[in-house]
Design a protein around this nucleic acid. Structure first.
Lengths: 223, 223
DNA sequence: ATATTCTAATAGTAATACTATTATTTTTGA
DNA sequence: TCAAAAATAATAGTATTACTATTAGAATAT
């Protein structure tokens, strides 16, 4: 089983790169170090020049993999959601009871992320911090509709649909499965942020576990 | 009564401006046209140069009111939450039943915004669109903690606390009043965004009313 | 061994996000 | 009413960003 999982690759929309970063050493370095750099200095301060320097190469090399830094952000966030989808499928596979399955899915979505050794070149904890702090910048743009048509947000939307389907399996009468599903996904991220920065308006001062709140929510909302 | 409401002013943290924009004609124009310009072209494309040109003045005049465009964004979002807080207080004042009060609060938070003639220089509909599309950029920065200490997000946090208090008044046993409160506020914004741009993952295809979903949520969650 | 692809280095550009200075207009209050 | 003070406008300048273009050298594949 473990053998089967070696060398896994998250499949990303090919329009998001000029050259597949998973196809070369330099590309993997760009991914891995790019993620670390953004998580350290934030997306606004991040430039390809700084990334080039960090990987002992230069700006133009990075430009040959990604069109610009916005696309790079969209790419790594797609990677993250693809990885989450994989985890979710894996963790819930084989669970028969629909509610139990949904609750497990919520845990996958809301629990603090741990490193995944199966993807050596990506630091998932750093990437998770990027998703918490920068993900909304990837779609809160004037170009959303066009980029949405290009399929830039497909993996994310597929994940929301999957959870929505699980909600439907628990209670087909429930009228807002999609809204609840995105409340779980985005609410979890937002609550992580609030816990870290605006702790005066959080319940669990100190350690953060939105999954309690969210699991309580669905069990009370669904029949 | 109506007389009393004339010439209302939303009080904003004085660290957010160099010169109070509500204190002069030019200042009000900067506010009003700045809001329209950001809602038209988006925050990334927005510059003080463009705003100066639009108000028939120039860049340097705008810089004398606001330190930079980020602070300008923080200012107008504070204005928005101050205005919402005012509406909320007004709309729920006098309602005795705690649940009824909370449901009214949710309506104020989640219903699509309409123009408020009491504040002639601000287009609240445009401002609401900015809050939906740009608000998270005001706090998703590397400087959040410092700016939070300066009180840049006080009005927002006070609003979340108010709703949290209302939740507590309905059901003092409920364990997550703050999480639920911010789920209402931020969830409403996010659902508006999804409805407009990612409608395949929404329930109410077409017209958007997150207040149904949210009101159903609290009535089922609270005893 | 050579063709092809990949990577590095350099240079250049338009725009951004400002700052500084000076000139002109408007407001005010004695 | 008139001078001083404050507010606004205009111009110029700067460091940085987010790229593009070109060229040359290194690695790899056939």
């Amino acid at each position: 089983m473990e053998e089967l999982l070696k060398d896994l690759k998250i499949r990303i929309n090919e329009d998001l790169f000029l050259k597949d970063p998973e196809s070369s050493k330099l590309g993997k370095k760009i991914l891995g170090e790019g993620i670390l750099l953004i998580s350290e200095i934030g997306f606004e301060e991040f430039t390809f020049k700084k990334l080039g320097k960090r990987i002992g190469s230069n700006e133009s090399s990075v430009y040959r993999y990604f069109k610009n830094k916005h696309i790079f952000l969209v790419y790594i966030i797609n990677w993250f959601w693809g990885w989450k989808e994989f985890q979710l499928t894996f963790a819930t596979h084989g669970i028969q009871d629909p509610l139990e399955k949904l609750l497990k899915a919520i845990e996958v979505m809301a629990h603090p992320v741990e490193e995944d050794i199966r993807f050596a070149h990506v630091n998932e904890v750093a990437l998770n911090n990027i998703v918490i702090n920068e993900a909304s910048k990837s779609y809160l743009t004037k170009e959303v509709d066009q980029e949405n048509q290009f399929g830039y947000f497909l993996i994310y939307k597929r994940l929301i649909s999957r959870i929505s389907k699980m909600i439907d399996d628990v209670d087909p009468e429930y009228a807002h499965p999609y809204s609840l599903s995105s409340t779980i996904a985005d609410g979890a991220l937002h609550l992580h942020f609030l816990n870290k920065h605006f702790s005066t308006i959080t319940d669990a001062k100190g350690k953060c576990d939105p999954s309690h709140f969210l699991k309580n929510m669905v069990t009370n909302l669904l029949k």
